[in-house]
Amino acid sequence: MEERRPFISVVMPVYNVEKHLKKAVDSVLKQTYTDFEIILVDDCSPDGCPQLCEELAASDERIMAVHHNENKGLSMARNTGMTYASGKYIWFMDSDDFVEDSLFAMVFDSVKENPAELILFGLTEDYYDEKDRLHHSEVICPKREIYENKEELRRKVIDLEKQTLYGYAWNKMYDLDYLNKIGLQFEKITLIEDILFNVNFCMHIRKMNVLPFCGYHYNKRMDNSLTSKFVSDYYKLHRKRIDLIYKQYQKWGMCESGVKSVLGALYVRYIFSAIQRNCDKRAEMSHKGRRKWVRTLLKEPLLKELLPYAKSDGKLLAVMIGVLKTGCVSGILLLGRVIFICKNSLPMIFSVLKQKR
């Protein structure tokens, strides 16, 4: 007799989140739809998380604790969780976030209507300052949409990327059988592991449900957020992100001007984010080095292809696009320096302004 499967497997990598883990798990346990399992993957956390995982597992039979004997990173922790998952759908939730209680019920109802390979929803970005106080929130809520054929689904992907909804793993639930069929796992790569996973997952799927749910609280903390730390390969990684989606649309035969417009604007945003990072002392880059970097950048074939199409409704990004289109190295570096000063002097104010870009 075949063993009964839960509807949702929640895989939660755990590392150095002792202050937040119980809140994350409790938010899942409070779901109004209760047919799920939780797999806590302790990635050899140095704090009290290993013991807390065991305590949580002992408190509810739907919770399982798995422990790595060495730190392997987010991607490997997710892959470990995948090997234990038995649900119809799998969800990779971050262990320092929390979710409101209606998500699973909405997912279940949408799947009854359209048994899709991918369920996608929105989020609320909660920004916390250095003292872990909530400073402000930004809600990103997509419209409800049901896609029953691959052509409609593929045309929607670029809009999801524009809304910042395509790249995350934790705002999606994936059909586990399909995931196992294609043998997809997360790669160990900084910053872009989620988008790489999603591009590969979505390449051949036929059905997708988009839910108007924004109750996933993505907590962005100034004290330990990866995106607030210095990443030396920032530009290289984000150029790869743009190239991944560009090539995906080329393979789909849908690389039209609208797609290039969105990717061009995003590429510009990443470029200026990289330039302001180059101003950081940890980049060990002189002004002369930054000038050389920009001159090399302006020769990039991908940039030459996408920049002419780049457009933005936001004022800040529109300025970035305009300055980059001039090809003036001094102007580009000046704007990058201004962004660097603003971000580092007033990080919270800058995060608010960035949302209005």
Rank of each mutant, 00 (worst) to 15 (best):
V11L: 07
K19Y: 06
D26F: 07
T32V: 08
I38P: 03
C49Y: 05
L52C: 09
D60W: 11
V66P: 14
N69E: 15
E70Y: 10
T80Y: 13
W91G: 00
A105I: 01
N114P: 08
E117N: 08
L118P: 14
D129V: 10
E138V: 15
K150N: 08
L153Q: 03
R154M: 04
Y166G: 00
Y166M: 13
Y168G: 02
W170D: 11
G183P: 09
G183M: 10
Q185E: 14
N200D: 13
I205K: 01
M222W: 05
T227R: 09
K229S: 10
R241V: 03
I242S: 00
D243Y: 04
I245C: 01
Y249W: 00
K251C: 02
V259W: 03
S261R: 15
L263P: 05
G264Q: 03
L266K: 11
V268H: 02
I271W: 00
S273L: 09
Q276P: 00
D280K: 09
R282S: 12
A283V: 11
S286I: 11
H287T: 11
H287Y: 12
R290C: 09
W293C: 09
T296A: 13
E300L: 05
L303D: 07
P308Y: 06
D313K: 11
V319Y: 04
V323M: 05
I332C: 06
G336T: 09
K343N: 10
Q355K: 12
